[in-house]
Deep mutational scan, measured.
Amino acid sequence: TRVETATETAWISLVTALHLVLGLSAVLGLLLLRWQFPAHYRRLRHALW
């Protein structure tokens, strides 16, 4: 049971790290898009909202 718990903890930390990385890359990508294509971003936002 001790090994299982350790594996579970490792998986949880791995998944958390993955989610953090994905979230950060998504935010960075959005910022980059907004910085590179302001007109396109505004049009996209206008279409979405």
Rank of each mutant, 00 (worst) to 15 (best):
L28C: 04
E8Q: 04
R45I: 06
A17M: 10
T1L: 13
A26K: 04
E8I: 01
H46C: 14
W35D: 10
L30F: 13
L22M: 13
R42K: 12
T1Q: 13
A10E: 09
I12A: 08
G29A: 14
L31M: 14
E8R: 05
L22D: 04
S25H: 07
V3K: 02
A17P: 05
R34P: 01
T1Y: 12
E8H: 00
E8Y: 05
L14N: 02
R34L: 05
L22Q: 04
L24R: 00
L28S: 04
L44D: 06
G23I: 13
H40K: 09
L24C: 08
A47C: 09
F37N: 07
P38G: 09
R42Y: 10
L30R: 03
L48D: 11
G29E: 02
R45A: 09
A6C: 06
R34N: 06
P38M: 14
V27Q: 02
L33C: 14
A47Y: 06
V21T: 14
R42G: 11
A26N: 00
A17D: 03
E4L: 12
T7P: 13
A39I: 09
W35H: 15
R2Y: 13
A10D: 05
R42A: 14
T5N: 02
T16E: 01
H19R: 02
T7R: 14
S25E: 04
H40Y: 08
T9G: 11
A47G: 07
Q36Y: 15
T5D: 05
A26Q: 00
G23Q: 04
R34K: 15
Y41I: 11
A6M: 12
L14C: 03
H19K: 05
A10M: 06
A10N: 01
T5V: 03
L22H: 03
H19G: 03
R2L: 12
H19D: 05
T9A: 14
W11C: 06
R2C: 09
W11P: 06
A6K: 10
L20T: 06
W35P: 15
P38Q: 14
I12N: 04
V3D: 00
T1I: 13
A6T: 10
L22W: 03
I12S: 05
T16M: 08
L30S: 08
T7V: 13
L18T: 06
F37W: 06
A47K: 12
Y41V: 14
T16V: 12
V21Q: 01
E4A: 14
T5M: 07
I12W: 00
E8M: 06
L14Y: 02
H40L: 09
W11I: 05
T1D: 06
H46T: 07
L48R: 08
A10H: 06
R42N: 14
L33R: 01
S13Y: 12
R43G: 08
L20R: 02
L32D: 04
L20P: 05
L18P: 06
V27G: 11
L44P: 07
L48F: 05
L28Q: 04
V21R: 04
L28E: 02
V27Y: 09
L22F: 02
F37H: 08
H40S: 09
R43D: 08
T5G: 01
L20Y: 04
L32K: 00
Y41N: 04
G29W: 05
L32I: 07
T5W: 00
E8K: 04
A26W: 08
I12P: 03
V27A: 10
A47R: 13
L18S: 00
V27E: 02
T1K: 11
F37S: 01
H19Q: 03
T16L: 08
Q36P: 07
R43P: 09
V21E: 07
A39V: 15
S13T: 13
A39C: 03
P38Y: 14
F37I: 07
W11G: 02
E8V: 01
T1N: 07
L31V: 10
T1S: 12
H19P: 03
L31G: 03
H46D: 06
F37P: 00
Q36A: 15
G29D: 05
R2H: 14
Q36N: 15
V27K: 01
V3S: 02
A26P: 02
L14R: 03
T5Q: 00
R43L: 10
A6I: 06
R34A: 08
